[in-house]
């Protein structure tokens, strides 16, 4: 009898701990993440940079002739202004690309939609043999779309062996897209990308 009680208590304990296992985010903003990476490059010895006035969307294949798409100008101008403000605070001077800048800053946007399927995966195999169980195959799905703003810095005088530019710094802001531009949310994330990249400061 005592063994049964003990065993029952043990099972209850396992389920209590498992059932109370803490979960993750509750709000969309909590999924925002800022990723930066850099090469061992002498940023301090440089002074000027150039940046386009539009933000291209990473879609299709430009090499195969697809036309580039851009994010709406109203949104892009706010993002570009915030990037420039951060670059200036680190000592950089923005110049036209024709003026021979030390570095090129290329922003781009990327959307990815992830779809989750929920399915009674066992039913295909033996569900039909036990119709009295009352289960029927069903599935449903849910999805979310994440948006990523990518900022890269490369030196136009340095090219890799394959002809591609070498990214000396990459900043990526990733989060759930709501299709409502929240200036405070995005600007704060841009600021954070530069805050955690103090090595970008020029002399």
């Amino acid at each position: 009898m005592k063994k049964r009680i003990l065993f029952a208590l043990f099972i209850i304990s396992v389920f209590l701990v498992w059932g109370c296992y803490p979960q993750g985010p509750d709000y969309i903003e909590e999924m925002d993440v800022v990723i930066t990476n850099h090469k061992d490059y002498d940023f301090a010895g440089k002074a000027t940079y150039a940046m386009p006035d539009r933000i291209v969307k990473i879609t299709g294949n430009l090499v195969e002739g697809d036309e580039p798409e851009f994010i709406p100008d109203v949104t892009a101008q706010k993002v570009l202004a915030q990037i420039d403000a951060n670059m200036q605070s680190l000592g950089w001077q923005k110049v036209d690309v024709s003026a021979g800048p030390d570095l090129l800053l290329a922003p781009a946007a990327w959307e990815t939609t992830t779809i989750y399927y929920y399915y009674d995966y066992w039913y295909w195999w033996y569900g039909g043999y036990y119709p009295y169980w009352g289960y029927y195959p069903y599935y449903s799905y849910s999805s979310y779309t994440t948006g990523t703003l990518i900022m890269t810095l490369n030196d136009p005088d340095m090219v890799a062996a394959d002809g591609n530019p070498i990214l000396q710094w990459t900043g990526a802001i990733n989060g759930i897209l709501t299709y409502a531009y929240d200036v405070n949310r995005v600007n704060a994330l841009i600021d954070k990308a530069f805050d955690q990249s103090s090595y970008l400061k020029t002399n």
Partner: peptide, 10 residues
């Protein structure tokens, strides 16, 4: 190494 990731952590 040279990679930094920031955000809310669980």
């Amino acid at each position: 190494q040279n990679l930094t990731i920031s955000g809310k952590q669980w």
